[in-house]
C-alpha cells in the first residue's frame, strides 16, 4: 500500500465522519427506472429532506456507475418539453424536494455498465457547504407508478 493510498483512505475516513456528523440532508425512496439497454441517459428519482434550520443548496451529483450526473428539470412550456440543467438546487429548511417524473430528475449520463432491475447504484450529492451525501438508488421496473408514494393508495 503506497503512502498515497493511505492518505486517500485517511481523507475518505475523515470525510465520511464529517458526513455522518454534519450532513443533515436525508434521501428517501431513490430509484432508477429500468431503461432500454441502448439508452445512454437514465433518470434518477428520489426525495431529499432537509430537517435542519437552514436552507441547503445541492450543487452537484456524481456516481462511479456513470460518466456524469446532473440535476435536470423537465420544463414543458406551450407543449414543448425541454430539460433545463440546475446548477444549484435549494432544499428549504424544514422542507423537502421531490425528484419525480416530468419534473426534477437526476440525469444519469453514459452508464459504464448496463443496468438491470435489482441493481443498487451509489450516488453522491454535493452541497454548498462542501459536504457529500452518499445514497443508494435501486433499479426498478419502468412503470408509471411513483415508487416513492408509499402513503398513497388509489
Amino acid at each position: 500500500m503506497s503512502l498515497r493510498s493511505v492518505f486517500v483512505g485517511l481523507l475518505m475516513f475523515i470525510s465520511t465522519s464529517l458526513v455522518a456528523n454534519d450532513t443533515v440532508l436525508q434521501v428517501n425512496d431513490a430509484w432508477i427506472p429500468e431503461a432500454p439497454p441502448v439508452a445512454k441517459m437514465h433518470a434518477g428519482y428520489l426525495e431529499v429532506i432537509n430537517p435542519s434550520d437552514r436552507d441547503i443548496n445541492i450543487t452537484g451529483a456524481s456516481s462511479d456507475a456513470y460518466k456524469a450526473v446532473e440535476i435536470h428539470q423537465t420544463v414543458t412550456r406551450d407543449g414543448m418539453a425541454k430539460m433545463v440543467r440546475q446548477q444549484a438546487l435549494a432544499v428549504p429548511k424544514k422542507g423537502q424536494v421531490r425528484f419525480e417524473r416530468g419534473g426534477l430528475h437526476l440525469m444519469l449520463m453514459h452508464p459504464k455498465q448496463p443496468i438491470k432491475v435489482g441493481d443498487n447504484v451509489v450516488i453522491q450529492l454535493q452541497t454548498d457547504s462542501g459536504q457529500s451525501l452518499a445514497f443508494t438508488a435501486t433499479v426498478k421496473p419502468a412503470t408509471l407508478d411513483d415508487h416513492s408514494h408509499h402513503h398513497h393508495h388509489h
Binding site: P36, M41, H42, M83, R101, G102, H105, M107, L108, L144
Partner: peptide, 17 residues
Amino acid sequence: FTNCPDICPTTMLVMKA
C-alpha cells in the same frame, strides 16, 4: 429521441398504460 431519460419514457409508459 432515445437519449431522453424523463419525458419520453414517461410518455411511452403512459401509452402502455
